[in-house]
Design a protein around this nucleic acid. Structure first.
Lengths: 212, 212
DNA sequence: GTAGGAAGTCAACACACGTTGAATTATGGA
DNA sequence: TCCATAATTCAACGTGTGTTGACTTCCTAC
């Protein structure tokens, strides 16, 4: 080595430290979840002093909130969902979801949210908000069905379930199935939730006549 | 108060401390997940010294592992899934799942696993193991279809997705929908995954002839 | 040129956590 | 009756964490 011990003070030129920190944060929050990710770890990966992390982002919570600010563009995604034949709505939705999960930046953010949604209220709110805004509302509009919110929530539940099974818990053979195959199976489910008539009340789940 | 400062040494009679600790652990792991649950917190809820917790269970990891040891009885659940008309397999599965989530002890354990599966390998393994053993294998047997593992994984993904949406993220109106309604919507999905013919390869997802 | 702010490091604080070892009191079998 | 063993608390240790404040170096607007 040239023996250059990292000295104090500002560096010449533009360092890109802020971005490096954010990238490292996203990656680690995605891999470890909120609790197990440490400021020191992020700083290490970004090649920077831990104090600098908090110089840019005021606290760990703030950094987390910033790191899960969505990196997907609704003005692209929503039209992509809406355009095309209504008979293939479900399939389009799965394909778009799978495509998003395929991009590393997006995937890290999604994993962050999913990993942390369980114990971090910010993350849970983010997930709820995202699902509502980016998934439910457009889908409800696209379907134009009565019951739209419930239908959209059901569709969302199947997508989240697929993501958990595939990317978090890694249940085989789903985890390594080809996206096309996944789309073929799950597409019809979403299609039914979103566009087909509501299920009939079956005999066994009806209360006997005269009961309250 | 009677001023009775808790003194040291063994208590007369049977105290039930071990059970109290386990109950508190299950509850807190379920509410907070592995990381945010503390030994001190559990001890507090159980009315006991923190050291006693580690006297009974050798470490926090061990306590966690013990606390997620499944409280459901396969010899009851599996037959309940298998018996009855094959045409209503899907509906039976959802109903059983919802019924299990309704019992507080089971619910705490499920929540523990779900909340911690993302960052705790023990929990992820437990979830994978449980899904495989209690859900996938029996379902695969029940269906007797080719592709059984994939089919069962898909069914599992819809169940987990419903649980996350309903109990963790609390997406409305799914979160407060009546179990009957949930069963009516989701039953057919499981039914299709488990018993209906595999989806045909559609034109749009086929590669053009001659490509690798 | 020079002042003020931005980028960067260093050392330290305070706190909470999991874990340990010794000490104390009860139980139950020989 | 005695003694090993179980149940229980207490006090403490070590470690890792988020966060802070002082300090230095560079950039840019006047």
């Amino acid at each position: 080595m040239t023996g250059a011990a990292r000295r104090t003070g500002r560096r010449p030129g533009t360092s890109g430290s802020r971005d490096a920190i954010l990238r490292a944060a996203r990656r680690q929050f995605g891999e470890l979840g909120f609790e197990r990710t440490t400021i020191r770890g992020i700083a290490g990966e970004a090649g920077v002093d831990p104090a600098l992390v908090l110089h840019f982002f005021r606290s760990k919570e703030d950094l987390f909130a910033e790191s899960i600010r969505l990196v997907i563009d609704p003005s692209v995604v929503v039209p992509a969902i809406l355009e095309g034949p209504r008979a293939r709505l479900g399939e389009r939705v799965v394909r778009i979801a799978l495509e998003l999960w395929g991009r590393p930046e997006v995937r890290d953010v999604f994993l962050s949210i999913l990993r942390s949604a369980s114990s971090n209220e910010v993350a849970a709110a983010a997930l709820r908000g995202f699902i509502t805004r980016e998934v439910l509302v457009p889908l409800a509009e696209a379907s134009g069905m009565p019951n739209a919110p419930l239908r959209a929530a059901l569709a969302g539940s199947q997508i989240v379930g697929m993501a958990v099974a595939r990317y978090v818990v890694k249940v085989e053979p789903l985890a390594s199935a080809h996206p096309d195959e996944v789309a073929r199976w799950i597409g019809p489910t979403l299609q039914r939730y979103l566009t087909e008539p509501a299920p009939r009340r079956s005999a066994s789940s009806r209360r006997p006549r005269g009961s309250p």
